[in-house]
Every structure is written in structure tokens, then in C-alpha cells.
Nucleic acid binder design. Structure first.
Length: 499
RNA sequence: GGCGAGUUGGCGGAGUGGUGACGCAGCGGAUUGCAAAUCCGUGUACAGGAGUUCGAUUCUCCUACUCGCCUCCA
């Protein structure tokens, strides 16, 4: 069994994963608040934890891993959209419109994350479907003295939990010094955070022992992880911006409500994403969604393929800030284009791969790739191994190998890519569907060239070649023949006059 | 102010107590009608200072700078 080592934010050390239930792994990752299209930053944890999910499935078996990622569908921004729509004359109750908004956002989220190759988690609970569990947990916390009700609010008594601050490494005193905590008349202590708050008639609400209201943000993850994974599970993940206060508060709630359990054994946090060296923000004008990139993306492209987005993400280790740069996306696409072309023609291999992809990975993946991933998800090193394999198949390198050796390398490349979530055959097909058939130009160029070889007058060849180059096509002439393929800035309109 | 992360060659980005990962770009050569692609070759990098050590980019301390969190933003 491959030993998986992960950096635990709680201990700040790399630790070996030892599942609580032998042979079974459980993981909870904080999911999106479904108020709008996911931006590119939202995709980073999705890809990071998807790689982990795939690795765990590879090591422990497909059915041995339970992955829970929630949807937060209680949120003021969802309410706002719903209220606006209602004001604009949309039919249905406010609750209907709220549900409608989160439904459409979840649909988008699925579409976009599918596109970057993320497997669907085992469970994707919605906060609104676990309100009774949250209410029960809050009642329990009150009964145990860790929470209190005041003016329709229920608050968590932070000072009653001695371990508070362990994950983020701050003491309650530190935080008081920071003095950014919200002071409110219904709080016993400024540090206390909300478990339940009242809703007025314009807001969604649920009945509770404390009146009509809605849950605080942190309680949903505690309630849903308990409902689906129990009081102790192996891995809890999320972006490092959630480390405090969200995860700290989750720990406080869960550990006080279920002292018999250990809650999460390993905490994983991914670093944030930047764009061209700067934090992505609306004010800087570098804010964009995953969909923007998939549809439009890099200028001159017909959108950025999801696999290219994923490849760029995997280039950087998850605990380091990742920079989305157009230049990186371009080299990523070149790499994937090469890889897919190296395996595309092997239809027999494609058939075998598609029959059972997971089985294919088990049989053929290079152990070096698995080892790199098992070492705290070192995706960058995994890619290095794959690049080396790909290089062997490139151009003249390939002739050094026998057919059997070539096929072995192809298998390793396809399997390794799939383990990190890139389906080369899917990519190859997607690319060829979107590309243009330039073989007519290739034949024409071949004919002109053959004539020119005799006459030594290359002007006609050069004229056609420059037109093709001007249109963004790549022209490759070898003794074997002429190849014309669309380049990164290919513009088919410019070829119209040549037909 | 508090807490935390980081600073590696032109750019990106791994890693290690002792032979300069890897990619892109560059340079030289092969090849080519010219190119492109490909192939071969090619790089005095580890923020600064002090310490530990036979030896540190890798460990410890200090300094500088960058960034994140402390505001339901992943």
C-alpha cells in the first residue's frame, strides 16, 4: 500500500495518512457559496482536492473513499438576487426564487468544474437540507453549556472551549488585541460567534426553538460532516482563507458537541490564486470566472480548454500561491497538444482506456507519478515524470524505441495524465472537433513544392506558405510530406481568399 | 497591532546537509530550397547577515522585502 503523506495545518508537519477505519478514507471539503458563477480562484481547491480524491481512490479503491463537499445555499447575496428578481416581477415566493437562484448556480458550478476535470464528490449536501441537524446540534451545544440564546440569537461561548485557536495558532487574547471582532449587545463576549440568527419577513427562515431564523455560517459544515461522516473523519480541506475563523469555529462546535470523536485528523489548506502576479479582485479589473476562461479566455483562442486550466493549476504545489498567467496557459496548451497527438492515433489503446479508465490507471501508471502525488500532492513532480515520458515519444526520439516500448510509454502517459485528472483522448477529440481541416492546403503546397523542386523557383511555394503563416497556421515541410495545422492564433477567415 | 506563509538561474517552478530537477525562452550545431518542427549540445540560481558543520541553497537565529488571514472572499 502506498503511503500518503500530507501537510497537516494543525501540526504544521507532513504526516502519514492513517485512516481511522482501516481501508476506508473520509474527506470533507468546504464547498462554494452558490450565489454566482465560480471565479477562477474557486477552482483551485476543487482541482487540488480532486487530485487527492483520485489518488485516494487509486490507493484505497474506488468504493473506499467518501468525499463530501457542501453547497452553502444560505447567503445574503443569494437573497439579494432573489429579492431583485421578485421586485422585477418574477413569479413565485421569495423562497422559490432563492431556491431557483441556488439551483442555477449549482448547475453552473457543476458544468464549470466538470470542464476542469473534477470528479463529483460522493455527497454534495446543501445547507438548506440539513437545517434540522443544525438545530439539533445547536440545542445540544446549549444543553452542554457551550452556547446560549439571547434576543433570538444563539451564540457560541468561545471562552468555554479551552483549545480554541489551536488550528490558526492564535490565542483569544491575540484576537481581542486585534479588536476586529464584532461587538453586539446580544453577545456575552465579543469573541462569541453566531450559531443561529433571527430572520425578518424578507429573508428565508426556518422554525427553531429560538424563533424563525437561519443558521450561522460555520454550523452547517459541522452538522453536515457529522451527518455524513460521523464524529471522526480523516481529512478536512479548504482554502487557507477559511482557516480562521471558519475552520477554527467548526472545530470548536464539533468538538464540544461530540467530545467522544476526534473530528478531522488532517487539515489541508490550499494557498490562494493570483492573476499575473496580483490578487484577483474586481477593483483591479483582473477578475474573471472559470466560464469566462472556458468560453473566451486567451485572445486568439476559441476559449481555454478545461484541461489546460487544470494543467496550469497542477504546475504549482497546492501550498504555494499560484499565479494564473496567460504565458503559462499557452505553454500548458502546447504540452497537452503534443501529448494528445502522441497517443491519438493508437485507437486500440484508446478503446482499452475507455473500457475502464480506473483499471487502466491501476495497470499502467508509472509508480513515480503515484509516489510524487503521495508525497504531499507534489503535482509538479508528477508532471515532470510525465513530461519525460512525453519527450520520449516526440519526433526522432521515438525511433529509438521498439513498437512495444512506444506503447508502454503511451500507456504510462495516458494513465499518469488520467490519475491527475487529464483525459488525453477526451482532450484530443475536443481539440480536433474545434479545429479546422487544412489538408487541402497541405496537398496544394505539396504539389507546388514538388514542381518547385524541379524548377528551382520557390516563389509560388513561399507565397502560399506566407499566407498560411499570416493566418496563424503552422507549416511543417519534411521529406516525408507537408503538414498544415492551426497554430495558437489561427484565424480561418484569413484563408478565405486563398480558396 | 496579532497570526501565518513565502523570497531558487531571463521567466516559471521542484528539491536536497556534499555530482546545477524540470519546463519555457536564449545561445551553438545538425537538418531544411528558406523556414517551422525535430534532434544534439549549452546555464558560475538558491534575498542579506551571523551561527552550527569537514561542508548549507538545504538546519538555527537575526534583518529586509513580498503576500495572505484577523471583514461569511476558496
Amino acid at each position: 500500500m502506498v503511503e500518503i503523506r500530507l501537510t497537516n495545518s494543525m501540526t504544521r508537519k507532513k504526516e502519514t495518512l492513517v485512516p481511522i477505519r482501516p481501508g476506508q478514507v473520509s474527506m470533507y471539503v468546504c464547498g462554494p457559496t452558490v450565489y454566482d458563477r465560480a471565479h477562477l480562484g474557486n477552482a483551485r481547491p476543487v482541482v487540488v482536492f480532486d487530485v487527492l480524491f483520485r489518488l485516494l481512490r487509486h490507493v484505497y479503491g474506488e468504493d473506499a473513499v467518501t468525499y463530501v463537499r457542501n453547497f452553502t445555499d444560505v447567503d445574503d447575496r443569494i437573497n439579494e438576487t432573489a429579492q431583485k428578481r421578485k421586485a422585477a416581477g418574477a413569479t413565485g415566493t421569495l423562497e422559490d426564487l432563492i431556491r431557483e437562484r441556488s439551483d442555477e448556480t449549482i448547475r453552473w458550478y457543476h458544468d464549470d468544474m466538470d470542464a476542469v476535470g473534477a470528479l463529483r464528490p460522493t455527497h454534495e449536501p446543501r445547507a438548506t437540507e440539513y437545517i434540522p441537524q443544525m438545530v439539533a446540534m445547536i440545542e445540544d451545544l446549549i444543553a452542554k453549556g457551550f452556547a446560549y440564546e439571547n434576543e433570538g440569537h444563539v451564540l457560541f461561548r468561545v471562552r468555554r472551549y479551552a483549545e480554541y485557536g489551536q488550528l490558526s495558532g492564535r490565542s483569544v487574547e491575540d484576537m481581542i488585541a486585534g479588536a476586529r471582532v464584532e461587538v453586539a449587545p446580544y453577545k456575552e463576549d465579543p469573541m462569541d460567534f453566531v450559531l443561529w440568527k433571527p430572520s425578518d419577513d424578507d429573508l428565508p427562515g426556518w422554525p427553531s426553538p429560538w424563533g424563525r431564523g437561519r443558521p450561522g455560517w460555520h454550523i452547517e459544515c459541522s452538522a453536515m460532516s457529522y451527518a455524513l461522516l460521523g464524529d471522526s473523519f480523516d481529512i478536512h480541506g479548504g482554502g487557507n482563507d477559511l482557516l480562521f475563523p471558519h475552520h477554527e469555529n467548526e472545530i470548536a462546535q464539533s468538538c464540544c458537541a461530540h467530545p467522544e470523536g476526534s473530528f478531522a485528523s488532517i487539515w489541508l489548506h490550499n494557498e490562494m490564486l493570483q492573476v499575473e502576479g496580483k490578487k484577483m479582485s474586481k477593483s483591479l479589473g483582473n477578475f474573471f470566472t472559470v466560464r469566462d476562461l472556458l468560453d473566451k479566455g486567451v485572445p486568439g483562442w476559441n476559449g481555454v480548454p478545461g484541461d489546460v486550466i487544470r494543467y496550469v493549476f497542477l504546475l504549482t504545489h497546492y501550498r504555494k500561491p499560484m499565479d494564473w498567467r496567460q504565458a503559462t496557459a499557452i505553454t500548458a496548451k502546447q504540452r497537452l497538444d503534443i501529448w494528445s497527438s502522441e497517443v491519438q492515433s493508437n485507437r486500440e489503446l484508446e478503446r482499452e482506456f475507455k473500457q475502464d479508465r480506473d483499471e487502466f490507471v491501476r495497470n499502467y501508471v508509472d509508480p513515480t507519478v503515484v509516489e510524487a502525488l503521495a508525497d504531499d500532492l507534489n503535482t509538479s513532480n508528477a508532471l515532470t515524470t510525465l513530461i519525460a515520458a512525453g519527450k520520449k515519444l516526440e519526433g526522432l526520439s521515438r525511433v529509438q524505441f521498439t513498437d512495444d516500448e512506444v506503447e508502454t510509454i503511451q500507456r504510462q502517459l495516458v494513465a499518469g495524465c488520467y490519475l491527475i485528472g487529464i483525459d488525453l483522448y477526451h482532450y484530443a477529440n475536443a481539440i480536433s472537433r474545434g479545429s479546422f481541416n487544412l489538408s487541402d492546403f497541405a496537398s496544394k503546397l505539396t504539389a507546388l513544392r514538388e514542381t518547385a523542386m524541379q524548377t528551382k523557383d520557390f516563389s509560388a511555394v513561399d507565397a502560399l506558405k506566407s499566407s498560411l503563416l499570416a493566418a496563424g497556421a503552422e507549416v511543417r515541410m519534411t521529406k516525408a510530406g507537408v503538414e498544415v495545422i492551426p497554430g495558437p492564433n489561427f484565424d480561418p477567415a484569413k484563408l478565405e481568399p486563398l480558396k
